[in-house]
Nucleic acid binder design. Structure first.
Lengths: 337, 337
DNA sequence: CTGTTAGCGCATTCAC
DNA sequence: GTGAATGCGCTAACAG
């Protein structure tokens, strides 16, 4: 039924070793016999069996990718960066959603390892000791993508979330705002949550602005929770003049909450956030935000992984990609009001 | 270095066949020896090699997924449906972006087949004879996801794009509109392009409205092209009162174009489209649209594929999932104007 | 219930 | 340049 390398060898009148050589582009084959083999391959419709090759060579040319949720546009964008570079280096990717659930993450890491991936890209929630333990049992390189482990034991690619948040809040401050609220993510989340919150606090502190707990609401990164948080701020006696949101999605929720209340952005409230998802430039007013290079985070982490897999020397196992403040129309100076 | 089934056998004092049995949950093992084996596995940190298993059993428990672009929210949503169901049936997915490029599609189909996937899910542009040819060389089941082939030779899961468009235009007509423009996709694209355009024409015809070529603009499905198209309509002497857009994204572009021109939706123009991406309810006014069940398209096609892979009987190899008109705020009656 | 024996399809020495 | 032999780690009969 299925045609093997052996069939091709017989058809071409050579040994299977020779067929293997031409299939793998080994130069030590006479052009003439190479041609014969190609013809036999064509005639028989031979298709190399990558599983057998993987067993024999101990390389599968596939990498595992653990991702929180591919339907989240941020991760989808990162994934595209990963796949493009993987493709460029002739790797395929096995994609596993793990929803930032530790248990699920550990499980898929193991099945990926069983499948003998040549490397692993991990995007997840907190990197716990159990994760590190699972990584240790792996005999292939691993890189953290859009996350880091606390001790910096695992190669990683990410942005500096704290500074990104700091910069965002700072542009608010530079516009004269001093009553600045924050819509945060959960503080359990080290990157998008805790670090961005820290950046907020530091910016305030640096400007000599008192931190007030009732100006911070915890959301879940989603649009709806941005609306909820903003509703709360709207109910305050002493309202803020600006809002810093940990993510664009919540910021957009806040904008719509404000507008639905008959007020406007940035006239009544300035809004800034971090991410720069596509939607940020597809709202009115267009959202001012600190862009994180999603595609590049994916691309660079995959590139790093290819180096590790080829045992090439890498001098920067911990890459911090630059972020950039994109001034659009959701922030104005207090004076203008 | 790597511990094999043979090491475990020695450690447990049994044969490798027995180890294989307990690893594969074969009931024919005495609980006692099963325990011994588990302990040996634990002690040695044994991890089954799925590649070797795949070679021996001729099953890899992985399926290939060809997708146009994972960073497109529609496909990302479908992909999530696919992966959830795959996961449920203990399959992993190899994800390949092919950007609707025929050449790239054929190439990844072949590498997926080389990797011995147990099945293939195909999302792409046009399904050409070359695609069918590639499918024929496969010895594993294939299902088309969010596409169909013209002759209906390959199992598929999709919505009825023409009727979805028809319904959309019809709700415009029921609201009293007769000057209805369309922002279409390329007519080369059978589903999102041609079929939706046909639905538009049929709805007009059915209502006795003359089809006018200058009321149709071709976009590329993206936000910006929606803006462009709307600019054109705004420049017409005899302007339409309603716009039907083939996709939500272009519709949102149209809305913003209108608003940026100082006009409003739905007061000056009613807008309707097809898709129901998340963003549709995150614009002001919220977009009225015909929803296609993205997640379900993915889930159902994967479910169908599992049945095919298990050689179970399926009576509907061509599934059409229902669409549904979601009335929001971007459409109003002409009388109200 | 358990062990023995063959391959699965290919890469890879090692000779020639 | 080319061929013969070996084994990658596991499943799957087949015996017993």
């Amino acid at each position: 039924m299925t045609v093997t390398i052996y069939d091709v060898a017989r058809e071409a009148g050579v040994s299977m070793a020779t067929v293997s050589r031409v299939v793998n582009n080994n130069p030590n084959v006479k052009p003439q016999t190479r041609k014969k083999v190609y013809e036999a391959i064509e005639r028989l419709g031979y298709r190399p069996n990558a599983v057998a090759r993987g067993l024999a060579s101990k390389k599968t040319t596939t990498v595992g990718v653990v991702i929180p949720d591919i339907s989240n546009s941020i991760f989808a964008e990162i994934a595209r960066g990963i796949e493009d570079i993987a493709n460029m280096y002739h790797y395929n990717i096995i994609l596993c959603n793990a929803d930032k659930k530790k248990e699920k993450e550990i499980r898929v890491i193991n099945t990926l390892l069983e499948k003998q991936v040549d490397g692993l890209l991990f995007m997840g929630g907190v990197v716990t000791e159990d994760h590190l333990q699972a990584f240790r049992t792996a005999s292939v390189p691993i890189v953290l993508c859009a996350t880091t482990d606390e001790q910096g034991l695992v190669p990683s690619v990410d942005i500096d979330h704290e500074t990104a948040a700091y910069d965002a809040v700072n542009t608010l401050i530079r516009h004269g705002h001093r009553d600045i609220a924050m819509i945060s993510g959960t503080l359990q989340d080290p990157a998008n949550g805790f670090a961005r919150f820290q950046g907020y606090k530091k910016a305030l502190e640096n400007a000599g602005i008192e931190y007030k707990e009732d100006l911070v609401r915890i959301g879940n990164y989603r649009y709806e929770s941005g609306i909820e948080a903003m509703k709360y701020f709207l109910g305050l006696k002493k309202k803020p003049t600006a809002i810093f949101s940990a993510t664009d999605e919540m910021a957009i929720g806040a904008i719509h909450c404000i507008q639905d209340a008959g007020l406007s952005v940035p006239e009544d409230f300035s809004i800034i956030s971090v991410d720069n998802i596509r939607m940020a430039s597809m709202v009115r007013p267009q959202l001012t935000t600190v862009a994180q290079p999603m595609y590049d985070i994916g691309a660079v982490s995959m590139r790093l992984l290819t180096k590790l897999m080829k045992k090439e020397h890498v001098d920067h196992a911990h890459v911090i990609l630059p972020h950039e403040t994109i001034l659009r129309l959701s922030v104005s100076s207090v004076n203008e009001e």
